[in-house]
Design a protein around this nucleic acid. Structure first.
Lengths: 291, 291
DNA sequence: TGGAAACTATACGCGCAGCGTATTGGATAA
DNA sequence: TTATCCAATACGCTGCGCGTATAGTTTCCA
């Protein structure tokens, strides 16, 4: 199957006339006829009843037309996207943020950045679970805000922003919330929610596994707010960074003997590849008072 | 653009390795390399950032991959018209939720579903911005919870769950929060945040444009929590569904003369292609008291 | 640190897929 | 009948995309 066959057939379905469809498609009538014939051979059945001026699409023909139209729509979208990216005035800074990094500390920073650089817009993206700093190198994003990666990347400028611990999250009415500090082994008594999007998920699970604390979650999600709603409703508990945005009804407690920490950084392409705007925002972030 | 380029690129996007993608595609490595190069020439920009084992798709590459996948889906529907493959009995139900649909109403439902069907696990996914109900048909998800799409899809069972209006979101201290109902033209005086992930974004902007209310956001994001933090801090206002999960400090107000509404539905594959578990959860959802 | 391995790009020649021109065969209308 | 419209066939040609071979880089590993 070829793409020209697709457009040929759509034109044929519209005109129900091989000659006219050929003219529409910008090819000779025999070419179009042969292309349709090949299509029919490949699909194993006729697409159109040939009957002079009373030609009609077959049942299969109708279904094929519908699917072909979808393909054409997708193809046009591809062209739209390419124009969008080609023309893309890079006045817009695409900034990606790791899912577990919350807005709390950043809104004020972005306010000041917008104030200092009046000519730019900031477009915030959520970093998907399969993405990392390489997306900056590939040009998908101009900057990345995320926990520091273990392996350093030479081609990136990485500015540290602040550090934070991991803590227990539970409902305000939860028994564990009664104490200011929680003991690690007490967590076992309660169902646990798995935050799939957490970059430290493996290290957290590992941390407990090493103490023979096996946590077996039945509910897992990559949607932070869903996880938190389950927790806030008292159905389960979870582990999350202390500065994470939390829904109403969810409280956090430090865990005794649990020392996992992370550093949040901003990563941009280094050196001359970066535009002025990108370098500016990286510098602003590095100089900012994150307290 | 040719169809072999489409499948070549999809294989490349999966492997991020020209040699492996060529083997997958059943052609030689130079052929695939040239095909991708032609594609990039045609689209006017790079699709993949070439860096040995750290190769990554560019932004354009990601967009193109998504559209190409739709084309492949359409092509497969053409071929598999008469035959549908039976899905294996899944014990894990993959449920995708649109980003703007919040957990508030659903945690209790999933609790009851888990109680009624003890043999299953539920795995919740966030529906990406480039995905829609076709991901259900393709088998990636077993069910989709999302606003009703304008164009109906025959092959899907779509059960309505509840309806909700769009309302204003602003800080509790915001001047607009003083009144129980807000007038549309008053919104103009305040900076506006663009919720990129909102399926109704275009309709909302259109709604205001038609009344000569031009909203010019300088801050846009697909991270719901970030948008809400900006709003809760009083830096801006936004439009959001009334049942959306909201962060602390953000309040909602109905807007006078603003009648945009959406219906949240659950979509599953229809008929015999669906397993018992899928049909069960769709029925449970349809029968549930969403009030 | 140097050599092997992995990976992508270029060079070059070839085969055939699909094209156009010309033509035939059938159906329909006047 | 003749004129007209339409699809299919015949046939030669061109170019596109393919494979083989190889060069140019980067990464890996000892």
């Amino acid at each position: 199957m070829e793409l020209n066959q697709v457009s040929y057939f759509i034109n044929l379905a519209e005109t129900l006339n091989f000659t006219a469809a050929a003219r529409l498609s910008g090819v000779s009538q025999p070419s179009l006829t042969r292309a349709i014939r090949r299509l029919e051979d490949e699909l194993g059945g006729p697409l159109i009843y040939r009957d002079g001026k009373n030609s009609r699409l077959t049942g299969l023909g109708h279904d094929v037309e519908a699917e072909f139209r979808r393909m054409v729509v997708a193809m046009k979208s591809v062209r739209n996207h390419s124009e969008h990216w080609a023309m893309g005035g890079h006045r817009v800074l695409d900034v990606a943020v790791a899912p577990t990094v919350g807005p709390k500390e950043f809104t004020a920073f972005f306010e000041s950045a917008l104030a200092e650089m009046p000519s730019i817009e900031i477009k915030l993206h959520s970093l998907q679970s399969n993405e990392d700093t390489s997306e900056v190198l590939s040009g998908k994003y101009h900057a990345c805000i995320m926990p520091r990666e273990t392996r350093p990347e030479r081609k990136l400028d990485v500015h540290p922003l602040f550090r934070e611990r991991f803590v227990l999250g539970c409902s305000a009415n939860h028994p564990l919330a009664a104490n200011e500090i929680v003991r690690g082994e007490d967590l076992l008594e309660f169902p646990f929610v798995d935050r799939l999007k957490c970059e430290f998920r493996d290290r957290i699970l590992d941390h407990f596994a090493r103490r023979d604390l096996l946590m077996r979650p039945r509910f897992r999600s990559d949607r932070e707010d869903w996880v938190q709603r389950v927790v806030a409703d008292g159905h389960a508990i979870c582990i999350l960074p202390e500065r994470s945005p939390t829904v109403q009804g969810l409280v956090t407690r430090p865990i005794d003997g649990f020392v996992l920490e992370r550093e949040v950084v901003i990563a941009t392409v280094s050196g001359s590849t970066a535009t002025v705007e990108i370098r500016n925002i990286a510098q602003l972030a590095a100089r900012y008072e994150w307290n």
